[in-house]
Design a protein around this nucleic acid. Structure first.
Length: 197
DNA sequence: TGACTGATTGGA
DNA sequence: CCAATCAGTCAT
């Protein structure tokens, strides 16, 4: 009864080494931690996720391995970051076992604080916006998600336990033109930091 | 609804 | 080589 009530447990690669459709809802309520080059730390509660997996036509790895998507073919516990529409970045957590392409897109965070004048609940409400807020770009693609690196994940603390499955909404994914019927998007119900309701 | 932006991809 | 596409965001 010492550290467990004070410090969050780190999310380990083995915990992520399951199908993206399993991990994506479990990541809701976990904390994404960003340590900036100057040492400052930004923490955000994950409130919206999407799964991308084998046989999924919307997945970047649907057709073949390439320079861009190679990290999602590797073992769980690394970041997959790509540039989208020429201007924004998207951050994913690589999941499932080595050799099975799979990832979870982190779509929105609830931050602890935001710059003066910014909306606390909207500053990281969207995959491009959260990468801006946490200064995530392609230089972090393939990085290990563990303390001491630029990014890591922590499990839900006792103060932020989700009430139960009632508090999670499962629906279809956003912004894609293929695989639109797969219900592989999850978000925390009634959370003002979700990108779209 | 459409403008913006540039890496990536797939087809000549 | 070139054209289309794109897991987004914001202003209109």
């Amino acid at each position: 009864m010492v550290n467990s009530t004070v410090f969050n447990q780190i999310v380990e690669p083995n915990w992520l080494a399951r199908p993206a459709t399993i991990v994506a809802p479990l990541l809701l309520g976990c904390v994404l931690v960003r340590q900036l080059p100057d040492g400052r730390v930004i923490r955000g509660l994950i409130v919206e996720t999407e799964a991308y997996a084998v046989g999924d036509p919307a997945f970047h790895a649907y057709k073949r391995r390439s320079d861009r998507n190679s990290v999602v073919f590797g073992p769980a516990g690394r970041s997959y970051v790509y540039l989208i529409y020429g201007i924004y970045h998207c951050f994913n957590v690589v999941t499932d076992v080595d050799g099975v392409p799979s990832a979870v897109l982190i779509r929105a965070l609830q931050l602890e604080s935001v710059p003066d004048g910014e909306n606390l609940h909207r500053f990281a409400a969207g995959p491009g916006k959260l990468c801006l807020a946490l200064q995530i770009d392609r230089s972090l693609n393939g990085s290990l998600l563990q303390p001491g690196e630029a990014l890591w994940l922590e499990h839900r603390s006792s103060e932020q336990q989700l009430a139960g499955s009632d508090s999670i909404v499962q629906t279809t994914r956003i912004g894609i033109s293929k695989g639109v019927d797969l219900p592989w998007r999850w978000y925390i119900k009634n959370c003002a930091a979700v990108s779209r309701f």
